[in-house]
């Protein structure tokens, strides 16, 4: 309505700042975002935060319970695992693996997805046919099974894990970008740029991309939670990060044998996964509501 139009001219602030303000007003999402940031800090400053060396085995403290239980002590606040390593310290170091792999996979996948989606959506023709068919085929692949297969083929290693998870992940941003590009390329400002003699590269990267970035960022954060779970799954199966590097998935797996008598070995890394994934999901939904109101209306 005309009133909204009036507001648009009134607001001297940028679109981004207005969206950010809307996001901050959503308390739950903002709180979740703070939790995510805390996890990131924990990962970065792990050596300073962790009470013990996460690799230091001490069979004397084998399966030591957390501090509030009988036999627990402050030296190992969340207890110790079967090799007597500090669980809290391992969780803190494990955050590095989860967050780094999650971020790296999303970064690679989003970059590839944006480029492929822009090319398919703007250039159309055979480029679109090839990319869209590839996307369709990949969507038919069972994600985890193929990731397991790839890991088995390529062998362990950080780079290989990122590849094994990103092989299909790019499909998601690609589809979002392609759809948005198809809509945006028909807008008059894109036509105006063509009328001025702008190249396809200029139009894709300078005119279209900045306008479709919001949904892409939103999707990337939502998918990050998913990738963290996948990485934990791979590690749980022993195909992820190799021991002794601390990884939440592998820690959950390690504790399976003692789940009845020493439940803390599996439970605390599991809670860490749950907490981080939940926080990312809630925060990303808040982002989505603030930056891409189309989804909510």
């Amino acid at each position: 309505m005309s009133v909204i139009e009036t507001n648009a001219t009134v607001a001297a602030e940028s679109l981004f700042r207005r969206n950010m303000a809307a996001f901050m007003e959503n308390r739950l999402a903002f709180g979740s975002a703070i939790v995510v940031v805390l996890f990131v800090f924990m990962a970065i400053f792990a050596p300073w935060i962790a009470p013990n060396d996460p690799y230091n085995t001490n069979l004397f403290f084998r399966l030591q319970p957390p501090v509030w239980m009988d036999g627990g002590e402050w030296a190992y606040p969340l207890g110790a695992d079967a090799l007597g390593r500090c669980i809290l310290s391992r969780i803190i170091y494990g955050a590095r693996v989860s967050i780094f792999i999650g971020a790296a996979v999303i970064l690679v996948a989003t970059t590839v997805g944006i480029l492929a989606g822009l090319a398919a959506g703007y250039l159309r023709g055979w480029v679109d046919v090839v990319i869209s068919r590839l996307v369709d085929i990949l969507l038919g692949f069972p994600y985890l099974i193929f990731a397991i297969g790839l890991m088995a083929m390529m062998g362990p290693g950080l780079g290989n894990i990122i590849l094994a998870l990103a092989y299909k992940e790019w499909v998601i941003p690609c589809r979002v970008v392609r759809g948005e590009t198809l809509v945006t390329r028909e807008l008059e400002y894109v036509e105006a740029a063509r009328a001025l003699g702008a190249s396809s590269k200029h139009i894709m990267l300078r005119e279209i991309l900045p306008n479709i970035l919001s949904p892409v960022i939103v999707v990337a954060t939502i998918r990050m939670a998913h990738v963290i779970i996948l990485e934990a799954s791979l590690s749980f199966l022993g195909l992820g990060v190799q021991p002794p590097t601390a990884s939440w998935g592998a820690m959950v797996a390690d504790g399976r044998a003692f789940i009845l008598e020493s439940w803390w070995v599996s439970t605390f890394p599991g809670v860490a996964i749950l907490l981080l994934v939940l926080a990312i999901n809630v925060a990303s939904q808040g982002l989505r509501d603030a930056f891409d109101p189309r989804f909510t209306e």
């Binding site: 679109l15 807008l187 008059e188 400002y189 036509e191 105006a192 009328a195 306008n211």
Partner: peptide, 19 residues
């Protein structure tokens, strides 16, 4: 294209909102 130009109908759609 420098010599022939166009002015569009919709003043909202014809300007890139991010520039």
């Amino acid at each position: 294209r420098r010599r022939m130009q166009i002015i569009f109908q919709d003043p909202y759609a014809s300007l890139n909102p991010r520039r």
